[in-house]
């Protein structure tokens, strides 16, 4: 190779390596969607606190969540295979041994991690974190590889194994604000994002800022024991911020560093 050519080649290689140095860390720093959107952090940080002392395990939240979000009905066969989709499930937990056994029931929606393992692994950015910290899901982009489902340590993401079957009457009862999913894509709890949209629209119409009481997810609205608090973790005055500071507060699998925005209050 001519010395001149070689010098040019080396220059180009150096430029390429430089480009990589700039580009690669950026790609890793992103929260799973286009860099510029993530960098503009939203004003609010939506979070949930579930008081296990108040929770009776009645599953009203599970039903409310299913109806609000057009979740599949599911057949007994699907239930036997563990294929029924419920964005909010009750995790049974047994603690202790011998005569000190204690059974607790823990309502688990998507934990809305601040550093979600699922968005990192998605090859198409079909799952991402939005500006206000809600982990979203783009059904029309999802290729159904189930990598995010495997990466989620809480097993709170769900895959549509087949085409969901609906009775004819369901056409009248669907929530028009929520898309009905189809086979082969992943779905999950979105903190009733449609309710946030509606609250935002309403606030805009009335020419004011959105307030916490405007945005109430279905599970909170349905909870008869008022065990669920929901609001803005960025606002130190909010109920969720106050409860999140409680000495009873803990997060699931905190040691994994996912920083969930669903916080639990230990049974007293």
């Amino acid at each position: 190779m001519e010395p001149e050519n070689r010098r040019n080649l080396l220059k180009r290689l150096a430029a390429f390596a430089g480009g990589l140095l700039v580009f690669v860390p950026r790609a890793f720093a992103s929260d799973g969607s286009e860099g510029e959107i993530v960098q503009a952090r939203g004003k609010h940080r939506w979070g949930m606190v579930i008081d296990l002392d108040r929770c009776t395990g009645c599953q009203s939240c599970v039903v409310a969540c299913s109806v609000e979000n057009n979740q599949m009905l599911g057949s007994p066969e699907e239930a036997a295979m563990g294929r029924v989709i419920r964005w909010l499930k009750i995790l049974p937990r047994t603690e202790g041994e011998g005569s000190h056994v204690r059974q607790s029931l823990i309502p688990m929606p998507c934990q809305q991690c601040e550093d979600p393992p699922c968005t990192r692994v998605c090859p198409t950015s079909a799952t991402f974190m939005n500006t206000e910290g809600i982990v979203g899901q783009v059904y029309d982009r999802c290729i159904g590889c189930r990598y995010c489902v495997n990466a989620c340590p809480y097993t709170c993401k769900f895959f549509n194994w087949g085409e969901p079957q609906w009775p004819a009457e369901a056409n009248q009862s669907f929530n028009p604000d929520v898309s009905v999913r189809y086979k082969g894509v992943v779905e999950k709890c979105l903190f009733c994002h449609q309710r946030l949209q509606r609250a935002r629209d309403k606030a805009r119409e009335e020419g004011r800022e959105i307030q916490e009481r405007d945005y109430v997810p279905a599970c909170k609205a349905a909870c008869p024991a008022q065990a669920i608090a929901f609001g803005d973790l960025n606002n130190p005055e909010s109920e969720v911020s106050r409860l999140a500071d409680s000495h009873r507060a803990y997060r699931f699998l905190e040691e994994l560093g996912t920083k969930p925005k669903v916080i639990y209050l230990r049974e007293g």
């Binding site: 090859p123 198409t124 982009r141 999802c142 290729i143 159904g144 189930r146 894509v185």
Partner: peptide, 20 residues
């Protein structure tokens, strides 16, 4: 894949932190 016909999305909407 659940949606094999969308395979090209991996190249159309590449997400560089994904091992896939």
């Amino acid at each position: 894949l659940g949606r094999p016909e969308r395979l090209l999305n991996v190249l159309l909407y590449p997400h560089f932190t994904s091992p896939i």
